[in-house]
Deep mutational scan, measured.
Amino acid sequence: TEDARKEAKKIIDNGGSPDEAAKFIKKYGLSEDQARELVKRAL
């Protein structure tokens, strides 16, 4: 979702790792793979 993508970008912009961002956005109901893909797109 757009919200999850924004959250991921915010985490990374604040110095978080892509892994942290992926873990965080899994709470939106995404699978591990979906979360990682979304983080990649957010970069």
Rank of each mutant, 00 (worst) to 15 (best):
E2L: 10
R41H: 12
A8P: 01
K10W: 12
D13M: 12
S31V: 00
A42W: 13
A35W: 14
L43H: 05
A8G: 04
E37D: 10
E2K: 08
K26F: 04
K6I: 13
R5N: 05
I11F: 12
D3L: 15
K6L: 12
E37A: 09
K27V: 06
F24A: 15
K10Q: 10
R5Y: 15
K23L: 08
R41S: 13
L30R: 00
E7I: 12
V39G: 01
A42G: 04
L43R: 04
D19K: 08
F24H: 14
L38N: 00
G16P: 01
L43V: 08
I12G: 01
I11C: 13
K23N: 14
I12C: 02
T1K: 10
S17K: 03
N14Q: 12
D13Q: 12
D19S: 10
K26M: 15
K9C: 12
N14H: 10
V39W: 00
F24Y: 13
L38V: 14
D3E: 14
D13H: 09
A42H: 04
K27Q: 12
D33N: 08
K23W: 10
K27I: 10
K9R: 13
D3M: 14
R5F: 15
I12R: 02
T1H: 14
Q34D: 10
D19T: 09
K6T: 11
K40R: 12
I11L: 06
N14K: 09
I11R: 03
L30N: 01
P18L: 14
S17I: 05
D13K: 11
E7V: 11
K6Y: 07
D33G: 05
K27S: 07
L43M: 13
P18Y: 09
D3F: 12
F24M: 14
I12E: 02
E37G: 00
K26R: 12
T1C: 15
R36P: 03
E7A: 14
D3C: 15
E7T: 08
L38C: 11
R5K: 13
A22Q: 09
E37W: 00
D13T: 07
K10E: 08
D3S: 12
A42T: 11
A8R: 03
A4Q: 05
A21I: 15
E7Y: 06
E32G: 01
A4I: 13
T1E: 12
G29S: 01
K9D: 02
D19M: 07
R41M: 14
R41E: 14
V39M: 04
R5H: 09
K6N: 09
K9E: 06
I12Q: 02
K26P: 14
D3A: 14
K9G: 04
A8M: 08
K9Q: 11
A4D: 01
A21G: 01
A8Y: 06
E20G: 02
L43E: 06
K40G: 09
N14F: 09
R36I: 12
Q34T: 07
D13N: 08
A22P: 06
K40L: 12
R36C: 13
K27H: 07
D33F: 07
K40I: 12
A35S: 02
G16Q: 05
I12S: 02
D19G: 07
V39R: 01
S31A: 04
F24C: 15
E32W: 12
E7N: 06
I12M: 11
T1W: 15
F24R: 13
L30D: 03
E37V: 01
K9I: 12
F24K: 13
L43G: 04
D33E: 13
A8H: 03
E37M: 03
K9P: 01
L43Q: 07
R5S: 09
P18W: 11
G29F: 04
D13P: 02
